[in-house]
């Protein structure tokens, strides 16, 4: 029974439900409608960026630059859309223009990462870490560390109203889920993650597929940036700086392997849900930020351990 449970791909979803049921009676407001909307609202941007990371991780890579991509996309998009001397200030195209600029930033950073990794065969860790440092510095330099405000309501509503964001994120989730599980591209991504050399010999266009995963990750980071920026009604050059632990944590908790070849978009949804529940409940229990960080770290280590045990069971 325990063996079957550990092997189940619904383990994290089950844990989320058990955790929710166990804490609801003791945590004031945890199960209230308003709080569930809060959990959903905090889940959505993290889920979007984590889905891109899932693509990269399954292909055997890692993208550490997403946090700075979020920051740069935020300030570039806001520079276009803001009513305070923005490039399209007062124009009806301010919102679409801002969003387009943000997605362009994501695609550019992703293309650079992908090109450096595939063309020059550089390690993804080093490439994306360097990109993170560069892009982060660039965002601060561009704005002289100032935040940008006065964004159009048509822009901010995307992040501030959960019922507007939810259908958009749901569609994106379904598209990415089907792309990964039902298309040839998805099979290629898994094949590369399992064994890159074998995939190459089998005729998989490894370079192009890897490039695609990093561009997808950049685009997802930019899309998450739209949600974060809208939520706070302002753009900041340090936006998203602290989400790397949550991001990697959510994908690993969901079951996506850091070694590549294994993972699903649905697992990432479960991972993000579980992390959001932990975060929210510990906040409600009035634990300090630092205690929450320690608890999250412990949960991520536990998830990695379970993943390891699960792999052993499957191989035995």
């Amino acid at each position: 029974m325990v063996k079957r449970l550990i092997q189940s791909e619904y383990l994290v979803l089950l844990l989320s439900a058990v955790y929710f049921a166990a804490l609801a009676p003791f945590t004031p407001g945890f199960a209230s409608t308003g709080n569930l909307a809060n959990i959903l609202s905090s889940m959505l941007p993290l889920l979007v960026v984590a889905m891109g990371q899932t693509f990269v991780l399954i292909a055997g890579g890692i993208d550490l630059s997403v946090t700075s991509t979020i920051a740069l996309a935020s300030v570039v998009g806001a520079s276009v859309a803001t009513g305070d001397q923005g490039i399209l200030s007062g124009n009806s195209l301010a919102t679409p223009g801002g969003i387009l600029a943000m997605l362009l930033v994501g695609a550019t950073v992703g293309s650079f990462n992908g090109a450096a990794i595939t063309r020059f065969r550089m390690p993804p860790f080093i490439v994306t870490l360097t990109t993170m440092i560069f892009v982060s510095g660039f965002a601060v330099w561009l704005t002289q560390s100032k935040s940008i405000f006065n964004l159009p309501t048509t822009f901010t509503i995307l992040g501030s109203n959960v019922w507007v964001a939810l259908p958009l994120v749901a569609v994106a989730t379904l598209v990415m889920h089907f792309a990964l599980s039902r298309t040839l591209l998805g099979h290629w991504i898994y094949a590369i993650g399992h064994n890159k050399n074998a995939a190459e010999i089998s005729g998989v266009p490894v370079r192009r597929v890897l490039l695609f995963t990093y561009i997808a990750s950049g685009l997802c980071a930019a899309a998450a940036s739209i949600l974060y920026t809208g939520r706070l009604e302002s753009a900041s050059p340090v936006m998203g700086r602290n989400i790397l632990l949550d991001l990697i944590g959510a994908t690993v908790i969901g079951g996506t392997s850091l070694y590549g070849g294994k993972g699903k978009i649905l697992w990432t949804v479960y991972g993000v849900l579980f992390l959001a529940l932990i975060d929210n409940s510990l906040n409600l229990l009035n634990l300090s930020y630092f205690t929450i960080m320690m608890a999250k770290g412990a949960v991520i280590v536990m998830a990695a351990t379970i993943d390891s045990v699960r792999n052993k069971l499957l191989n035995s």
Binding site: P28, G34, N35, N38, S41, L232, M239, D279, N280, L284
Partner: peptide, 14 residues
């Protein structure tokens, strides 16, 4: 800032 927003929402929830 994002985390602080969530914390204020939590206060409101409570």
């Amino acid at each position: 800032s994002n985390r602080q927003f969530e914390q204020i929402q939590t206060f409101v929830t409570r």
